Structure formats: C-alpha cells, structure tokens
Amino acid sequence: MKVTISDIAKKAGVSKSTVSRILNGNYGQNTKDTVDKVLKVIKELDYRPNALAQSLKSMKTNVIGIILSNLKNPFWARVLEGVEDTCRKNGYNLMICNSNEDELLEEEHIKAFLMRQVDGIIINATVKNDHLYKRLIDQKFPFVTINRKIPGLDIDLVTMDNVAGSMAGVEHLIGQGKNSIALFVYPQENVSPRLDRIEGYMKALISNGIEIDHSLIHVVEEKQGRVKEAVKKLLSTTNRPDAIFSTNNMMTLEILEGIKEMGLNVPKDISLVGYDETVWSMHLNPPLTTVYQPSYDMGELAAKRVIELIEKTGDLQPITHILQPNLIIRESCGTKKEEFISE
C-alpha cells in the first residue's frame, strides 16, 4: 500500500502541514526533536514522494534529456559519465536517447522530451533539424549542443579542437618518415568534427611540404564492413601508402581487420594512428597511437552549462567551450615507449 503524508503525520503525532514543511526542507518552525521524529518515520515507512505532483507544483521536473548520435561508439560512454555525474551532484535525473544519425528519430526524441517537460536538453545533433533547433533557441529553452557545430545558429556548444587533434596525429606520422598517408573518414554531410579532421590532415601535409593527394582521402559509408573492404582495396594497389590516419575509433577496428586480412603487419608494413582513445587502444597488438579527447570533460561542461541555463545562474548569452585533444604515442607507428603528448 502506498504511504501518504497522512500516514506519516498520524504515526509521528504531528499535523500534515508539519510533515509537508519538513519534506520540503523547511525545518525552522519545528524543534529538532520533531524534525528527527518525522524523518525517522519517513525512513521507517519508506515514503517516496510523488515526483509528478511535485513537478506540477514547482513547474520543474529536475530531468535533463540527452540525445546522442551513436551509442555503439565507446566515446559516448565517457561523455555520458560526465553528464550523469554532474546531473546527479546537482539534483537532476538524466533521460538518454539515441538518434542513430536519423534526423526523423532525433525530431521524435526532441518532441518527446518537450512533451515530458524535461528542464533542458543536451544533443549531439544530426545537424538536419534546423527548424527544431531554432525553435528551442527562440523559446529560450535550456539547450546545449556537444561535439558538432550547427551552422548558422548562435547556440551553446561544447566541442573539441578537431583540427589540432588531426594535425597532431598526421604530423607524428610525418615525423616517423611517412609521406604517403591515407585518410579514412565517414561522409561529412556538414558534420563539423569530420570536416575539421580533414582540414587538420591537409594542414599538416601542407605545413610539412607534402603535396595533397586526393586519391588518398577515403570517404567511406558508415556501414559495417565498408571500411574494411576499402582498406583491402587500397592495400592491394602497387603504390600503397605507408601510413593510415583513421578519424574514428569504430573505423579503426575495421582498418585493422583489413590490414590483417591482407597479411600485412602494423607497424612493419604500414603505420596507423587512430582517433579517440578507448579502453582497448593500449591492449591492441600493437598498442595503438591515438588522439585522446577529454570526453568526460565534454559531458561535465555540457551538463554544467545546461543546469546554468535552467537555473539562470550564469551568463545567458551562448558560450562555446573548445577542449584540446592530446596525442598518445604507442607502438602502431614504430615507437616503443608510450608517450602522452600535450598539444
């Protein structure tokens, strides 16, 4: 049977209004003995407040929604950890949705969040629902984007310096004597991290006097097996590259599969640098040189910012946070000792 405020009041020998005040944290009008007695009864009866009733009364649900583009990617696990830790410390619950890079599904999630009266939304946008993003901005709804920029909209953003991260990876390969470096990237479609990583790749080549060979830039469909087949095709040519720069950790696994199936060895036959440090990067054979992104920090900053917007405690003008990646050097380029290089 559900425990009510009346049950608590009866057992504690106090009025319902006294119980209500104590539940709301208003202890001042009661003696310490009364407060202790009521709190003890609350614990004994395992009383659980009606969250819906409380939210109707306060016009606040203490829930934040987050929409991510691909929950299969381990990068988002650390982002979510940063978001959830910050929400919990500040008294908010988190609702998690996956758009799977589908703008229609993303739209459905946004509308569902608004229907459920969440207090704010964090989103790694598909960048295809401008009308919805703009509506949230116009309504001054607490709304923070992560990772991807939304062109043409002035909006709160927490992202990475992907140009710098890409340059660091490619310049390391050049420093190892590699001058034919293939780039693998998923289709850009105005997705800023992908575009920025291509830009960083090109800048690193140009700044080191290496001519850009567009035949080495491989834009591969984001479907299982497509990257592996593209790698095998590339490595079967007579003028195969001496290094590969992968712009996504899920892509890196398929690249490694393709290299293995071609009977080649990393780094003896071809060097490899990946993007996104994961728990398995150091356990690969050989351990993977990779661009590390402070993903937990991204989640933490996004959650802090959306809470500021909800509670109106910070600057309400849109703010952009750009986090700096670092390069972790391991053996996939020939280096023997692990190094953590801060850019």
Rank of each mutant, 00 (worst) to 15 (best):
R330M: 08
E222S: 12
I155K: 08
D46F: 02
L288I: 15
L301E: 05
V38C: 11
K16H: 00
N70I: 08
D138K: 08
H109K: 04
A112Q: 01
M95F: 15
S6V: 15
E229P: 08
T320K: 15
D213F: 08
V185S: 14
R197G: 03
L157M: 12
L136A: 00
E229I: 04
I64E: 02
E171N: 10
D102E: 10
L284R: 06
L68G: 09
P325M: 05
K336T: 15
Y92I: 04
I181N: 05
I244F: 00
M167V: 13
S246N: 13
I8T: 09
N73G: 05
E331C: 12
Y296N: 07
L71P: 02
P193A: 02
L45T: 10
E107L: 07
P193L: 04
F113E: 00
V63I: 14
T34I: 09
G165F: 06
L272W: 06
L183Y: 13
K312I: 12
G28E: 15
I146N: 07
Q188Y: 07
T290M: 03
V220M: 01
I64P: 04
S246K: 08
E101W: 00
E189R: 06
G258A: 07
M282F: 00
D242S: 06
G177K: 13
I96F: 12
N249W: 00
V38R: 14
D276T: 10
S215N: 14
M298R: 07
G13R: 14
H131T: 11
I64Q: 02
N147I: 14
N179C: 03
D130I: 05
G314T: 11
I310A: 02
V63S: 09
E339Q: 14
V227W: 04
L284F: 13
C87Q: 02
T34P: 01
G165N: 10
F340R: 10
K60Q: 14
P267I: 11
K2S: 13
D85E: 10
G152P: 14
E300W: 02
E343S: 08
Q324C: 06
Y292F: 15
Q139L: 11
V231I: 12
V227K: 06
